[in-house]
Design a protein around this nucleic acid. Structure first.
Lengths: 140, 140
DNA sequence: TATATTGTAACTGGTTGTGTTACGATATAG
DNA sequence: CTATATCGTAACACAACCAGTTACAATATA
């Protein structure tokens, strides 16, 4: 399984927007990430809907954070991405009548749930501010 | 992300083989799982190489467990599958020079590692025997 | 009015997992 | 020895998903 890099890239984008002087255009961000401006816009669409960021059309337009980065946790961003599956492996539920499948699920489900919960709790404890500060202190 | 069901299905297969009278053919197993015999063989290839199961050609052939199911943990089976990624999300590492990306990784990596470790420890504590027993006790 | 920018749909291409077909190798029944 | 059942494996088809790209409309500013 190739892991999905959406969350990682989105955090990368948001911190760049936060640290950028004035509004950052999709094109600028795309170049920072080595990707395409449309990809950036596409990823940001839902964050805009949630009010985390704002975009402005026309000359001098671009993207800006709309919330204090200390109040935006990685968990918030993860949720804004539509809560994509956290775990690469899941339960097969094709034969709910089969006692063997039921038993496999009986043992695996709590394990998977616990690992997910574990990760979400860690996500909740990291803010955009933390990441930005670490990034700027490193470059000093 | 659609979760990968390999582990879940493989456990399902192995427990069926364990509970089956005599050798179970790929075709029989495939019908239990609603899939194709070739898919079963393909998934079992590495388990055979590891000596967890044995296959026999010709009439009366099929699959049998080669190890005491109490000594086979879910972790063993997970490893036999080639340790596919556990987590659906990973780090983007396309710009190792970028301090922002470094900072994102700095925060995310330990969280991801811890969640993985958490899951593997739980896998280590579940054996094929546990699953088989739960399945048969349910059907009684 | 010209230009810079976002918004979004549509198409392409790569990757992955799964299903299927095909055929060879091998073991057993008779 | 032949027929049959079974595995082993390569090859191809197919769907899903993500990422990249192109294209064009809408909008804001100089």
């Amino acid at each position: 399984m190739k892991p999905n890099e959406k969350l990682s890239r989105m955090l990368h984008i948001l911190v760049h927007i936060h640290l950028h002087q004035g509004a950052a255009t999709s094109e600028t961000i795309a170049q920072m990430l080595g990707t395409n401006a449309v990809v950036v816009r596409r990823m940001m669409a839902n964050l805009r809907n949630l009010g985390y960021v704002q975009s402005h059309n026309g000359r001098g337009g671009g993207w800006q954070l709309q919330r204090d980065p200390a109040t935006l946790s990685v968990l918030d961003i993860y949720r804004a991405l539509g809560e994509p599956g956290l775990l690469a492996m899941g339960l097969s539920q094709d034969h709910p009548h089969c006692p063997v499948e039921q038993s496999v699920s009986f043992f695996l489900e709590p394990a998977l749930k616990a690992a997910e919960q574990n990760l979400l709790e860690q996500y909740a404890g990291i803010t955009l501010f933390d990441i930005a500060e670490q990034a700027t202190s490193k470059s000093r």
